[in-house]
Design a protein around this nucleic acid. Structure first.
Lengths: 196, 196
DNA sequence: AGAATTAGGAACCAATTGGTCTAATAACAT
DNA sequence: ATGTTATTAGACCAATTGGTTCCTAATTCT
């Protein structure tokens, strides 16, 4: 009978995800991961095979924990489209106000590891695209955008994605909270009215 | 009399800047830099002191070559504000169409090295802030935004900065050109009219 | 020619990197 | 107690990292 594993795989992946989120893929070394995960080298390689595979699993967990719930929220018709979209932007500012400047694992990776590894890029872009699609859905439930053509809403969803990524990167890069807040609020006006 | 230097400092810094731009600060190793700059280790350390100092000089060169000229262009009253702003966004898409997916050294650094080094973050944010200020100036020369309050223009300049950073990061991360283009064009509509 | 001074070259350094390997361990079955 | 099997522990590996050191080289001056 085999010796049982002493750690929980899902728990370990979550710890790795947080390490990668804080330091980026390239900036997170094996010792960093071992520290964060509280396991030894042999255990890490036995369970995950390689640093990259562990990163891919971290991206999948990020999807489960953050992207899918955000997409679901953006598609939740029990709330107005305005409210749903606003939650994304105000939420991104709120975490900074709470002292969390990690930004978004997808956005950080887009600017870093993606250009070195097409597989990573593909997975990251798939997640970002799903977020854009969810922006599109929520725009269809706003007073301002519901009556415009799908094509226009599609374009605006893409422009909102630029705002989202920009907001997350600027937050991570240390921009002033007041500036981030103002930028986010102005972005919100685009689907909430008062764009005059 | 000392032996004369065999390479040109400015030329070497430009080559370093391009290496850092392509691979990021942490992703660019000393051998990468020596290759790109065509000098030896001793020469690099003699001339620049450290990898970080070389990076700071690369950021300064990026400012001279890209940020200052963009700021000047955005403030050039011989063109309409609309035209100036549009040039920034269409130009960012055009370089991608030309095969250049490096993004923007500032944006990449914001998502990467900045969080590990406050000095780098400060310099990067100073440059980004100047770009935002230049957006503000150009907005004041657009038909749509010239008659609104400074406060509103300030907010919109910040929101446009999110779009700019998002566009550059998405480009680097490998997003489809058509999507980037649509996002940029939709962003342009915000100061060029036809936001209906 | 020798002196002075900085640059170039190449070896070296300690530390770190992602990954490998082997022995001991933990669990259950016989 | 022995056998089986996957896990853990910790040492090891080749390569790489940013930086240092020391000797040689290039230039001008006296």
């Amino acid at each position: 009978m085999a010796r049982p594993r002493e750690f929980d795989i899902a728990d370990a992946v979550e710890k790795a995800m947080n390490a990668f989120w804080a330091r980026g893929y390239n900036g997170t070394s094996l010792p960093d991961l071992l520290d964060a995960m509280k396991i030894t080298r042999g255990s890490l390689y036995k369970a995950f095979g390689s640093k990259k595979q562990l990163f891919l699993q971290s991206l999948a967990l990020y999807d489960d924990h953050y992207v899918k719930p955000s997409v679901a929220m953006l598609q939740d018709v029990s709330m107005s489209g305005e409210h749903r979209l606003e939650k994304v932007f105000s939420g991104s500012v709120a975490v900074v106000e709470n002292g969390d400047r990690r930004g978004c694992l997808l956005c950080n990776t887009s600017a870093g590891a993606s250009s070195e590894d097409g597989e990573i890029a593909s997975i990251v872009n798939d997640q970002l695209d799903r977020l854009t699609d969810a922006f599109f859905v929520a725009l269809g439930d706003t007073t301002i955008w519901r009556e415009k053509t799908k094509s226009r809403r599609r374009a605006e969803a893409r422009s909102l994605s630029l705002n989202y990524v920009g907001l997350r990167v600027m937050a991570r890069g240390g921009q002033q909270i007041e500036d981030l807040k103002m930028a986010a609020e102005q972005t919100v006006k685009r689907f909430k009215g008062a764009m005059t």
